[in-house]
Nucleic acid binder design. Structure first.
Length: 611
RNA sequence: GCCACCCUAGCUCAAUCGGCAGAGCAAACGCUUCGUAAGCGUUAGGUUAAGGGUUCAACUCCCUUGGGUGGCUCCA
């Protein structure tokens, strides 16, 4: 049932695991563990695998780790590496292993697992019979499957770093009910240049952090009094969000969607019927009582939308029905999980639900996929891949009959194939009511963000007993497609900020043009031109502050305003403006009318470039 | 929620060992009127997140609470 793309992911992982870089990182993790144990002989060691971009090792340490400790450990690691120790593998019996790791409770637990079989030293399931092996370099011997480099000399001591990231807490075996260990992250590369490049990328990501840029250009803020995870949109942020919403609203209208509006709360019974309440109780806010009846904040919009569908008897001639709403939902996220605009407690989804017949399913799904790709391309997120999320066969957090799941999964895969999408299939990524197709974009720094989602649902129509009257005059059950393109407006804006580093395409810039007079006597002309631009539909501000021209240019540049129009005597004479872009490019003087034509064209075509 | 760290003016940050809370930007006011990334000056701005404790003395040490950061867990 799984198509070839799963194999593709597997091969990428396999290629990494077979690589020299993987062995270097795995070996550096061992070297780090040795250095840590030398410093803290009473430390307990857990596991230390390579990860994307580096490695980590988890320890149970006698005290919190300081920056100085990290510097010291890193220094010692370089010494160990330079000493040129061989990595020596040996296979041991469970009994020998237990003797070897006496006093290391985490290792002993791992050995138990290995002996029982079926689980490797990282707790991952494996079908192969497990051989217990160890690797030793210098004084340090670790329970490990490998592979490693032959000698520490293969590690470049100037291409490793463990101080770039603060030590972090991590649960033993990823279980929040178990011990909290100290995780030290490290990164290791083959050359110092690669390390420098990686560290620069982290710097760049920091500079693009939407929380920082959002503050700098005045898009949003948070208030202690309002509460954590509840963003407040300032005027410029609200303009940006409104532009995105308006664009999508217009496109949806032209593609047969009908806008609806629903309230933010509902009776708990609604979510008991939908199945949200029992399944996701932990991530919902406590119900509150109103006149003896329990209500709650809505964690999803679908049940509300379904009630509108149910308000009328539907004929097959009415279908598909496509209801769209920018619906605000509230979900309880643990305080430590909150993060800027990307993880919040109240957010607005560009939600829509399509009710269709089984015969219409494929066509409707493909139409949504087309819409998704049109929107992503329009906003400049042109690098994306897709993921088919299916049930985790081990988990019981799903509702409904196998048959519906099977149909839905097959329909999604058929559509993805038909569209020629580059996709992977991943278990456990389904919604609780159905499988889905997610679009994952890659931003300017090649980081991935899950944005759009299309979900096929046989379950909620059954739970709510949805019907339509078919050609045969019999009652039939419609299928629902849930979809969101931006996903959540909050998260989407965050992604846009980081992707464009705050320098949005002109059509999305909260302020598109700033008028900068050379001297105060040019202010009247600046205001006149501003009025003309405003009439032409451009968002323009006049910088009438006390500073000098240079300062105003600097200020507009840091605010990432696309066009600066500098006006002085020379421009007034010719009814012109001198155009400077936020990139610093000087386009020289042009007639006001010409600027309006050019700028309007760039805005209307949603061009990514300003010239 | 858990582990670690942090919170000083609107913003970004100083303040040696526990000994008089300070700067830049922004703001207000004044001077300057200037052609492509910061003109000059003056003023104002603080219960050092809040509360408690130790001390002759707390921004500094301890505790509680709130908020933030990096991770973990979670993310329908």
């Amino acid at each position: 049932m799984l198509p070839g793309s799963e194999e593709k992911v597997f091969t990428i992982m396999q290629r990494y695991q077979d690589s020299q870089l993987y062995r270097i990182r795995h070996s550096t993790a061992h070297v780090m563990a040795q250095a840590v144990l030398e410093k803290f002989p009473e430390a307990k060691i857990a596991i230390g695998p390579p990860i994307e971009d580096g490695f980590y090792y988890d320890f149970d340490l006698p005290r919190p780790l300081t920056e100085e400790d990290q510097v010291e450990i890193e220094k010692r690691m370089r010494e160990i590496i330079r000493e040129g120790h061989e990595f020596i593998r040996r296979e041991v019996s469970a009994k020998e292993a237990r003797a070897l790791f006496k006093g290391q409770p985490y290792k002993l637990e791992l050995i138990d697992g290995l002996e029982r079989g079926g689980v490797d030293e990282y707790g991952e399931k494996t079908d192969e019979p497990v051989v217990i092996s160890t690797y030793r370099q210098d004084t340090f011997e670790d329970l490990c499957r490998g592979p490693h480099v032959a000698n520490t000399r293969e590690i470049n001591p100037d291409a490793i770093n463990i101080t770039f990231k603060a030590p972090a807490g991590a649960y033993w075996r990823g279980d929040e009910n178990r011990e909290m260990l100290t995780r030290i992250y490290g990164t290791a590369w083959q050359t110092p240049e690669q390390l420098a490049e990686y560290l620069e990328l982290l710097e760049e990501a920091k500079k693009r952090d939407h929380r920082r840029i959002g503050q700098e250009i005045g898009l949003f803020t948070f208030s202690q009094l309002v509460g954590k995870g509840l963003p407040l949109w300032k005027p410029k942020g609200a303009v940006l969000r409104d532009l995105l919403e308006r664009f999508l609203r217009d496109v949806q209208l032209s593609r047969g969607y009908e806008p609806i509006l629903t309230p933010h709360i509902a009776r708990v019974r609604l979510f008991e019927t939908s199945g949200h309440y029992p399944y996701y109780k932990d991530s919902q806010y406590s119900p509150f009582e109103v006149e003896g009846e329990l209500f709650m904040l809505k964690p999803m919009n679908c049940p509300h939308h379904i009630q509108i569908y149910k308000d009328e008897l539907r004929s097959y001639r009415d279908l598909p029905v496509r209801y769209a709403e920018f619906g605000t939902v509230y979900r309880y996220e643990k305080s430590g999980e909150l993060h800027g605009l990307t993880r919040v407690r109240g957010f607005t989804q560009d939600d829509a639900h399509i009710f269709c017949t089984p015969e219409q399913l494929e066509e409707e799904f493909l139409k949504v996929a087309d819409l998704v790709e049109f929107i992503l391309n329009s906003v400049g997120l042109t690098d994306f891949r897709a993921r088919v999320g299916i049930r985790d066969p081990e988990s019981d957090k799903y509702v409904g009959e196998d048959e519906g799941w099977e149909h839905a999964t097959q329909a999604i895969i058929a559509c993805a194939d038909k569209r020629g999408l580059d996709y992977t299939v991943e278990e456990g990524e389904a919604a609780f009511y159905g499988p889905k197709l997610d679009y994952i974009i890659r931003d300017a720094l090649k980081r991935e963000w899950q944005i759009s989602t299309i979900q096929v649902d046989y379950n909620l129509p059954a739970r709510f007993e949805l019907e339509y009257v078919g050609e045969d005059n019999e009652r039939h059950r419609p299928i629902m497609i849930h979809r969101a393109l931006y996903g959540s407006m909050e998260r989407f804006v965050a992604v846009m900020i980081e992707h464009f580093a705050g320098a949005f395409p002109a059509w999305l810039s909260p302020v598109q043009v700033v008028m900068i007079p050379v001297a105060d006597r040019h202010l009247d002309y600046a205001r006149e031109v501003a009025a003309q631009l405003r009439d032409a539909g451009l968002r323009v501000e006049v910088d009438d502050s006390a500073g000098r021209m240079g300062g105003k240019i600097r200020s507009a540049t840091t605010q990432k305003i696309p066009w600066m129009l500098i006006v002085g005597d020379r421009d007034i004479e010719k009814s012109a403006v001198s155009v400077r872009l936020r990139s610093g490019e000087d386009l020289g003087a042009m007639h006001v009318a010409d600027f309006i034509t050019q700028a309007s064209h760039i805005v209307e075509t949603k061009a990514l470039q300003l010239a």
